[in-house]
Design a protein around this nucleic acid. Sequence first.
DNA 1: ATATCGATTATCT
DNA 2: GATAATCGATATG
Length: 210
Amino acid sequence: MIRPISRAFFNRDTRRVARELLGKVLVRRDGDAMLTGRIVEVEAYLGENDAAAHTFAGRTLRNAVLFGPPGYAYVYFIYGNHYCLNVSCEPDGRAGGVLFRALEPLTGIEEMARARGIDFQKPSDLRLLTSGPGRLAEAFSITRGRDNGCDLTSSKSSLWIGDDGFRARGVRLTARIGITKASDRNLRYLLGGNPFVSGPKGSTVPRRKK
DNA sequence: ATATCGATTATCT
DNA sequence: GATAATCGATATG
């Protein structure tokens, strides 16, 4: 049994949302296919007070969803190759979003592998499906054209976020990955010890305060 | 196991 | 015209 998360859940401080999204489930319904993955790693991006956030310089056409009401998908395209998924947080008018960085595949693994163009040889290949923001977007066929602005709080959406009763254990807080600005802030949340968390080993330790 | 590098394009200055 | 919240391949210890 899995049920959607309320909009009120996202209408809060972005860091709190990020922390509590761990253990929830991303759902893609596509005709017959039902893809699901447990959220095991996310990052918080704090609107206009965060130099690493797309919203740092104010509202533009691209980032408009992040300034809008909470609980909607913000999808951006990066490096000419990859899509990445975020969910808008904070009340309407205030910017904030959580980036989905890694999932643990639960159902629809065949479909994910097909979308990723991966042929299974060994069990460790499972990590290649959804371990990384670009990878999970590809596994779930997430694109800006298709999904940007999608309501992630409704099970009527093709893409939504659900709660299946799982309780997150061993939450860790570390520096964010792959950014050049504000890289000293600990705004990455992950489930410690989960094999599907992305990034190099050792990146699961909080950055030491200078 | 870790490091470096090229790919490729929407977006903003 | 420069940049980027990444990935996968290749090189090196």
